[in-house]
Every structure is written in C-alpha cells, then in structure tokens.
Amino acid sequence: MTTKKTTARSATPVDAAVAAGKETMEKMTKLTQETGQKNFDQAVTVAKENMEKASAAAFKGYDQYATYSQANYDAITKSFGIMTKGFEDVSKAWFTYTQTSVDAGVDFSKKVMGAKSVNEIVEMQSDFAKSSFDSFVAESTKLSEMSVKTANEAIEPIKARVDETVVSISKVAA
C-alpha cells in the first residue's frame, strides 16, 4: 500500500466557508463604505442646512433683541430727559421762591427799622409770619404738584415699553 502525498491541498469545507465568509465581509465592507459615504454626505448636508436655519434664527433673534434694546434705551433716555427738565423747572421755581422770600425778609427788616413802637414791631412780625407761612404752603403745594407731574410724565415712556413687551410676550406664548 502506498500512500500518496499531495502537494496541493484540496479545498475542505472549512476552507470553502472561510473563503465565502471573507468574500462576504469584503462585499459588506465595500457596500458599507459606499453607503456610509452616501449617508455621511447626507448627514453633512442635513447638518449644514440645520446650521444655516439655526444661524438665520439666531440672527433674527439678535435683530429682534437689538430692536427691543434700542427701543428700551430710547424710552429710558426720553424718561430721563423728561425728569431732567422737570427737576430743572422745580429747581427754578424753588430758586424763585427762595429769592422772593429773601427779598420779603429784607423788606421786613427795613420796615422793622422804621417802626415807632414795640407793638408795631410785634404786629408787623405777626403779619410777616402769617404771609411767609401762607407763601411757603402755596409754594410747597406748587412744587409738589410739579414733582408729581414730572414723575408721571417721566414714567410714561417706560410704562409704554413694558406694555409693548407684555403684548409681544403674550403673542409668542399664545
């Protein structure tokens, strides 16, 4: 009995399975790469479109923010302008009252110097005190009214901005 040695191996079922598996893996890898590249390209395109949309929305939001900020700044500037003018008017009125009071005091002093009796001085003092008090009450009332008017006028631009903002937020929330 002679045994024959073969130098070439014959394909065994395991070798055939390994070769078929290798071929399948190569095909799957190739398909995955092709499909993956296609999917990757689609993903990049979608990401790019989404970034463009997000950027547009962000800039739109920024524009809205800038518009609101400018309107708020304008309202505050207008409010401070009204307040400044009002305080200027109140200061002028106060200065005028003070000047009038000083002049009245000087006139009273001159009258007292010309008085002929203590009773006359007491009577003049009583009249001067009454007129000074009445003048002070009238001027205080006037200055209070001016201050309240100034405060109400100064708050209007800010109140209008708050009202407008509330309406805008209500529309967005609805």
Rank of each mutant, 00 (worst) to 15 (best):
M1P: 00
T3S: 06
K4N: 10
T6D: 08
T7E: 13
A8Y: 10
S10N: 11
S10H: 14
S10K: 13
V14L: 15
D15V: 05
D15W: 05
A16V: 14
A17S: 07
A19G: 04
A20Y: 02
G21N: 08
G21D: 07
M25C: 09
E26H: 03
K27Y: 01
M28F: 08
T29G: 14
T29K: 15
T32Y: 07
Q33H: 02
T35P: 00
G36C: 05
K38S: 11
N39T: 10
N39D: 14
D41R: 01
Q42S: 11
V44A: 06
V46L: 03
A47R: 03
A47K: 01
K48I: 08
K48F: 04
M51V: 12
M51K: 04
S55A: 10
S55L: 09
A57F: 03
F59V: 07
F59A: 02
K60V: 00
K60Y: 03
Y62S: 00
Y62L: 11
Y65I: 06
A66S: 12
A66Y: 08
S69E: 04
S69C: 00
S69M: 03
N72R: 12
D74Q: 04
A75G: 04
T77Q: 10
K78Y: 01
S79N: 01
S79C: 04
G81A: 06
I82D: 12
I82W: 07
I82L: 14
I82Q: 10
T84C: 01
K85W: 01
K85H: 09
K85Y: 03
K85S: 14
G86D: 12
D89V: 06
D89K: 15
S91G: 13
A93C: 00
Y97K: 03
T100M: 13
D103G: 02
A104R: 10
A104F: 09
G105P: 08
V106T: 12
K110D: 10
K111A: 15
G114K: 12
S117T: 15
V118G: 08
N119I: 06
E120R: 09
V122M: 13
V122A: 12
E123H: 13
E123P: 05
S126C: 06
S126P: 00
D127R: 11
F128E: 15
F128I: 08
A129G: 01
S131Y: 03
S132K: 09
F136W: 10
A138Q: 06
A138W: 03
E139S: 09
S140C: 04
S140D: 06
S140H: 07
T141W: 05
A151S: 08
E153I: 02
E153F: 03
A154M: 04
A154H: 05
K159D: 07
R161Y: 02
R161Q: 03
V162W: 00
D163W: 02
E164L: 03
E164A: 12
T165A: 11
T165E: 02
T165H: 01
V167Y: 06
V167K: 15
S168T: 07
S168Q: 09
I169P: 00
S170W: 01
A173Q: 06
A174W: 02
A174T: 14
